[in-house]
Amino acid sequence: MAQITAAMVKQLREMTDSPMMECKKALVEADGDIEKAVDVLRKMGVAKAVKRAGRDTNEGTVATYISEDGKLGAILELTCETDFVGTNPKFTGFAADLAKVVAENDPADVEALKACKMGDATVADELTEMIHVIGENMKVARFKRVSVESGALASYIHLGGKLGDIVSFGFANDATATADEFKNFAHDVAMQVAASAPVAARREDVPADVVAHEKAIYMAQAAESGKPEFIQEKMAVGKLEKFYKECVLTEQEFIKDSSTTIAELAKGVSKAVSDDVQILGFERFAFGEE
Results as ranks from 00 to 15, higher is better:
Asp276Val: 13
Ala99Ile: 04
Val199Cys: 08
Val269Glu: 00
Ala96Glu: 12
Val248Leu: 07
Glu181Gly: 05
Lys24Val: 12
Asn88Ile: 02
Lys139Cys: 08
Asp165Val: 14
Ser150Leu: 11
Asp31Val: 01
Arg52Met: 10
Asp174Ala: 13
Val133Lys: 15
Ala47Lys: 00
Thr57His: 12
Glu81Val: 07
Ala2Glu: 05
Leu127Met: 15
Val40Cys: 05
Arg55Ala: 12
Glu251Arg: 01
Lys100Phe: 07
Pro198Leu: 02
Asp56Cys: 01
Phe94Ile: 05
Arg145Gln: 14
Leu72Met: 11
Leu98Tyr: 02
Ala124Pro: 03
Gln252Lys: 05
Lys90Ala: 13
Ala272Gln: 12
Glu264Ser: 14
Val206Phe: 05
Val102Ile: 12
Phe243Glu: 10
Arg142Asn: 05
Val167Gly: 01
Val148Trp: 02
Ala37Ile: 04
Met130Trp: 04
Val50Gly: 01
Ser168Trp: 07
Cys23Ala: 06
Lys117Thr: 09
Ala172Phe: 05
Glu129Met: 09
Thr122Lys: 09
Ala47Pro: 02
Tyr244Gly: 07
Ser274Leu: 15
Ala195His: 02
Pro198Tyr: 02
Gly288Asn: 06
Gly60Arg: 00
Asp174Pro: 15
Glu204Met: 06
Val28Arg: 11
Ala222Arg: 11
Val237Ala: 15
Thr61Ser: 06
Tyr65Gln: 03
Lys117Phe: 01
Arg42Cys: 06
Ser225Gln: 13
Gly135Tyr: 07
Met1Asp: 07
Thr79Phe: 00
Leu27Val: 05
Thr178Pro: 02
Ala53Arg: 14
Asp125Pro: 05
Asp276Leu: 11
Ala6Ile: 07
Gly281Thr: 08
Glu204Tyr: 07
Glu251Trp: 00
Ile279Trp: 02
Ala200Asn: 11
Met1Gln: 08
Thr61Leu: 09
Met118Asp: 05
Asp17Tyr: 09
Met44Leu: 09
Asp83Asn: 13
Ala175His: 09
Phe254Glu: 01
Val133Cys: 04
Leu72Cys: 10
Ile34Thr: 09
Gly151Tyr: 03
Val133Gly: 01
Asp17Ala: 14
Ala208Phe: 12
Glu29Pro: 03
Phe91Thr: 05
Thr178Glu: 15
Phe94Trp: 07
Gly70Leu: 04
Lys24Pro: 04
Ala200Gly: 06
Thr79Ser: 15
Asp275His: 10
Asp276Asn: 15
His132Thr: 14
Ala63Lys: 05
Gly281Lys: 13
Ser259Leu: 09
Leu12Asp: 00
Asn137Ser: 14
Leu76Trp: 00
Ala177His: 04
